[in-house]
Structures are given as C-alpha cells and as structure tokens.
C-alpha cells in the first residue's frame, strides 16, 4: 500500500489525475471503519493531512466558505457557530469528542450516508460543494452532489475542497433522533433554517430517504403564515401542520435501526418542535 502525503493542493490534484483510483483520506473516521470491516482495500491512499488550507474557513461576501477538512470541533467554535447555528448543533450531535476532533465536513459529504448529520443542514442552508481537479474547479448544489445513498457526483480525479454556505439571517434548528442519548447514528433528523431577509423557511430531513429530503411544499406553505415583522408564528396549529407537511416529504424505509412508520412520525414531531423553537 502506498500512502501519498502531498503538501499542496496542486500536488494532490496531480496525484489524483495520475492515479484516479487513489483513496482519499481525511479524518479517517469512516475510512478506517471500512478498512477494518474489509469493505475497502486501498492500494493507494492520498492523505489530506498536510493540506493546511483545507482546514481553514473564511467569510466571502454573503457566504461562509468551509475548507473540506474543517472538523466538527471547529464548527462548534462560537465564531462559526454564530454564523451557522444549525450546522454547529448538528456537529454537536456527531459521535464523541474524539470523533468530533477528527471527522471532517468533507468526509461526511463524501461518504454521503443518508444518516450523515451535515447533509440535511447543508441542504436546508442551500449550500454548495466545490470540487477541484487538475483541469479545473466546479461548484455543485448539494442536491446535485449527493446523487444517492453513499453516492456522489465526484469524479475519481476530483477532490472536494470546500463547502460554500450562504449566511442566513435568522434562527436555525437541528434535531436528531437516535436510540441513545449520544454517539448515535440518526434514525431521523430535521433541519429548519429561517431567513428573515429572504422571508423564507427552509427544512430538510435526514435518514428519511436515499438523499437528504428538502420539504419544499411545507416551506412554501408556511412562509406566508409567518408574521415576519414580529418574527413569529402565533398559532401552534401552524407548527403542527408544518410538521405534518414535512413528514409527507419523507421517503423512509424499514431497517434494523427503525421502521418507516416511526421515522415519518419522528419527522412530524421534530419539524413541529424545530419550527416552534425558531418562530
């Protein structure tokens, strides 16, 4: 097994161009589990460890640009958490302190598990994914990037280098159901993002379909019912009905973690609560 440790993005992309079969290694928290279970047998590993730039983030006009190797622990940093509270809340639900110090947002997106905790929040935030190869850079909407369960639009010669998140001015909530009170894979999760400036409410579901599910019907239904000047919804029945509409968007399955019926039910409860906390 060869392990490549490039110290610049250009070199990393050149390696990938030469050997598109190389396995990209970020924090390794998904990667090594797959190796241990024999689901992955890499001949060549391209480690991102020395690409310091990928661990940085900055604000660019109305966007936060997160390097692909930004960790969950970084997302919990108040400077970032204030800009994207929903992403910070989701980061807090991930794993244990060890996993949060090591696991990266780029790894979570590239694994593209239906249960990945970054996915629904990034979907509700209308985030974009930046992919680079030796021939150029392209930017995809999250919905274009995640094409199926554990499937993405990344080409083998590409590296996910950044995530671009439009800053939304308003409250955000991420709620996740698991059968344990910490360090647990989501059985169902809901992200709600309120944009006071754009007067929109955006919601997405995790673990309730092959990819993160945006609740467009619920979003457009609820927006006119918000008192945007007071920044609240007065009638609790609106929260309840929003929950029902979000749950209608779910496409859950039965598996060893839970049932489709419970997942739909949980989406309804979570979406209601998330909206009630926001508005």
């Amino acid at each position: 097994m060869t392990v490549l440790l490039p110290d610049s993005l250009d070199r990393a992309l050149a390696h990938l161009a030469a050997e598109p079969g190389a396995h990209v290694l970020a924090g390794g928290t998904d990667f090594m589990v797959e190796v241990n279970y024999g689901h992955r047998r890499p001949e060549t590993v391209l480690s991102l460890r020395r690409l310091d730039d990928l661990r940085m983030w900055h604000v660019e006009a109305s966007h936060v640009v997160l390097g692909a190797c930004v960790t969950y622990a970084q997302l919990l940093d108040p400077a970032l958490a204030d800009l994207m509270p929903g992403l910070a809340q989701a980061a807090r639900t991930v794993g244990s302190p060890q996993i949060r110090s090591t696991g990266t947002i780029g790894g979570n997106l590239s694994t593209a598990s239906p249960a990945g905790d970054m996915l629904p929040v990034l979907a509700a935030l209308d985030a974009e994914v930046v992919l680079a190869s030796s021939t150029g850079v392209r930017t995809l909407a999250l919905s274009e990037f995640v094409t199926g369960p554990k499937r993405t639009a990344r080409r083998a010669d590409e590296l996910l280098i950044a995530v671009r998140v439009p800053v939304a001015n308003g409250p955000q909530e991420y709620l996740k159901v698991g059968v344990r009170n910490a360090m647990v894979i989501a059985v169902a999760s809901v992200a709600v993002v309120v944009d006071h400036d754009g007067r929109t409410v955006r919601a997405a579901l995790g673990s309730c379909g092959p990819v993160p599910v945006r609740c467009h019907d619920a979003e457009s239904w609820v927006a006119p019912l918000v008192d945007w000047d007071a920044r609240r919804i007065d009638d609790p029945r609106t929260h309840e009905a929003f929950g029902v509409r979000c749950a209608e968007a779910a496409r859950p399955i039965d598996d060893h973690r839970s049932t489709a019926a419970y997942r739909s039910h949980a989406c309804r409860v979570l979406a209601r609560r998330a909206l009630a906390r926001c508005l």
């Binding site: 807090r92 909530e173 991420y174 996740k176 344990r180 009170n181 910490a182 999760s189 609560r273």
Partner: peptide, 13 residues
Amino acid sequence: VLARPGGAGRTST
C-alpha cells in the same frame, strides 16, 4: 437539553 431524553440530539422540549 443534554440531560433530557434524546440527549445530544436536542429533540426534547
């Protein structure tokens, strides 16, 4: 919230 049902998932009210 961490000490309530659902813990880190922040589900409980």
